[in-house]
Design a protein around this nucleic acid. Structure first.
Lengths: 186, 186
DNA sequence: ATATTTGTAGACTGATTAGTCAGTCTTGAT
DNA sequence: ATCAAGACTGACTAATCAGTCTACAAATAT
């Protein structure tokens, strides 16, 4: 595998375990199996590396969210697919999802520009906006609804991670919690 | 004010702004207006200080949650009071609430013992358990419901903090979001 | 009054860290 | 085969940090 990618992978693993600043770049390089200088060849500063780890994880999550999703389906099905995929990805990429949350509630998050954040949220907000316009969803502020949905997903993920549920049981929880959420916003 | 308390206050402020490890103990001492050695007189290690900041903030939040709450009221009213108080406190103590979240999604959180976490959640879980038993609340697993409620509160807080709402508007959002939550769990 | 404990100070240290640098190796084009 | 450009290395450095230590001051006890 690419050394650049190895560094990203190693950084994510160690950041989740020890935190951003408690993880020395030397340890990251070691874990990635590259020399110290190589890390700085690809990422000018440690901060740049931290941001890259976040962007990478976030991109992979978003990509996965939109798999198996066609625009022909009803809003509810599209929405449910996004919901289910998010939680599936989170369960199959626990460290990555945990990192995204850790990053989002850290001072580093303010380094992501407002435009970048808006750009990432845009497709999701559009779907919600459409749902509100067609009166499928309650006429709440989109931003509020978006935040509420994200929190709900974070909560369910936390619950799923708190115990060892079978795949069957996991799917059941995801389905039932979706109904709760759907009832709340429609 | 007590120097010990000044240190706690200064640490919280700087941790929120820069993160745990990016905040040197020397800066904390400086901000608190005490000497370097004084900090270590009260807190043997930096880690001990970090945990103390968390415990202190969490305690103050819990205390505030239970103000103006009598046991005679209906479950819905008790519940609503806890909900409203949480969000009120979060808005009036933004740094503190932010710190609690930052801490909770950091590797430091694992240093809090499972018993301590359970002890803190106990009173809330009891209320939920009672609501389920009396069929006021849906028969969901209490842990799931608890997590869902906490996430909901975190979401609303994030929304409230994302914009400059008037006190009036804030109260309206809190009331309406409570109804959403209440509908979801009953 | 004296002794003991507790609070406070700030200079100091050993360890650690992000980032640099000078140079070697690899690759692919000519 | 030669060459240039980028990949890669690891020893090195200047700065920083958590925590220590010695000394003195204040409060409390005897």
């Amino acid at each position: 595998m690419d050394k650049k990618e190895e560094i990203l992978k190693a950084a994510l693993k160690l950041f989740v375990e020890f935190g951003f600043h408690a993880t020395p770049t030397s340890k990251i390089a070691q874990e990635a199996g590259v020399a110290n200088g190589t890390l700085f060849h690809y990422y000018k500063t440690k901060e740049e590396l931290i941001l890259a780890v976040y962007t990478d994880a976030k991109t992979r999550l978003t990509e996965y969210m939109y798999t198996n999703s066609s625009k022909d389906e009803s809003l509810e099905l599209v929405f449910k697919s996004l919901y289910t995929n998010s939680l599936e990805w989170a369960q199959n990429n626990k460290a990555d999802f945990y990192f995204i949350q850790q990053f989002s509630s850290s001072p580093f998050y303010s380094l992501i520009s407002t435009e970048e954040i808006k750009k990432q949220a845009k497709p999701h907000l559009d779907i919600l906006q459409q749902g509100i316009k067609t009166a499928v969803l309650k006429p709440l502020p989109v931003e509020l609804m978006y935040t509420l949905i994200n929190s709900h997903i974070a909560g369910i993920n936390q619950y799923l991670s708190s115990d060892e549920f079978s795949i069957q049981k996991q799917k059941k929880i995801i389905n039932e919690s979706f109904d709760l959420l759907w009832d709340m916003i429609t």
